[in-house]
Design a binder for these strands. Sequence first.
DNA 1: CCGATGTGTTCAATTTACTGAACGCAGTTT
DNA 2: AAACTGCGTTCAGTAAATTGAACACATCGG
Lengths: 191, 191
Amino acid sequence: MTLDIGTRLRAVREARGLSQRELASRAGLTNGTISMIEQNKTSPSVASLKSLLDALPMPLSDFFADVEEQAVPKYFYAPDEFTELSPQEAGFGGGAARVSLRQLGNASSHTIQMLHEVYPPGADTGPEMLRHAGEEAGVVIAGIVEVTVADQVRVLNPGDGYLFDSTLPHRFRNIGAGDCVIVSACTPPTF
Amino acid sequence: MTLDIGTRLRAVREARGLSQRELASRAGLTNGTISMIEQNKTSPSVASLKSLLDALPMPLSDFFADVEEQAVPKYFYAPDEFTELSPQEAGFGGGAARVSLRQLGNASSHTIQMLHEVYPPGADTGPEMLRHAGEEAGVVIAGIVEVTVADQVRVLNPGDGYLFDSTLPHRFRNIGAGDCVIVSACTPPTF
DNA sequence: CCGATGTGTTCAATTTACTGAACGCAGTTT
DNA sequence: AAACTGCGTTCAGTAAATTGAACACATCGG
């Protein structure tokens, strides 16, 4: 989401019938600064923004309540825009190997969670089986992974997939020589 | 003036069980910055604060206001066990190009539908935009695809992803020289 | 006991926000 | 018309936020 503080601020300022200079003097800032902010050429500090809103006046929560509604929705993500989830939060307690779990977007505001997962050789989600609400599915892109679901164990190769209810105890182990890459999806997001 | 965002940020961060470094890496900032902010030694820019809250996640306004049942359930699928969806069934009416949409499992008995999609060069879901209930997300594995969602158009390369509400009109076009491979997920399954 | 890993803090260097004084433009006033 | 008054924008310089690499302090395993 690219949040548009500039137009939001301008809208509020003009609704009060204030010029940039008037608002600037009340807030203890300069008109130039306000101009830059309204054009989204800079991202003001919280302190500066609070000064401006105090001078209007308007609470920060109200200001952002509207800003987030007007925010431009984000549909596309470059590789570096995936958010890396820490192993701990993903449910991997004392895992020795480092697993990369890169999430697509901000799952808290969606009903679906998609992950780009990379397991180094030997990586294991651990003998303690994972369990959580929802369903999960995935496709193996590269490498070899042994997946355990309930009482079933299976070795999956590139092109293979899986699909099961997440409340069933499950476990992933990379038993190949190289990295194992999986693209998976969960619903609802697990936190 | 106070506006103690430092202790507020620390409270939410610790509530999530995250260290300063973990949060920093997710938000694309450094641990030092978070330390300074939490001690109120600096006033973060709105852009920085939003990055931090997105990684938690939490909206700015909140921050500021205070399978089908079988005898034996099937969890694993070999590549030839994916069910090929006919273009028509997938919503492609008179599409000239042949698109491969291979579905993992029997989606009607699940809340999640995962597809392994292959688009030949020039493939297009058509100028009539698709619309259906639910959300969909995907990761590009190979090739180059142009995706249109509502009024946004974007060219996605391997490693890129997408995530949007399926009620928004959308369209996929393979604009590369080779096949385009995408692994996607929808919720709920679209039929 | 010591090395390895974890935490949060500190500080010089860099990037960025902000200042202060310009600028150009549109109405009014003389 | 020229001179004023108001508006928002631009720009070099300054102040502050942010980085990146240290630091000190804990906990854990050999």
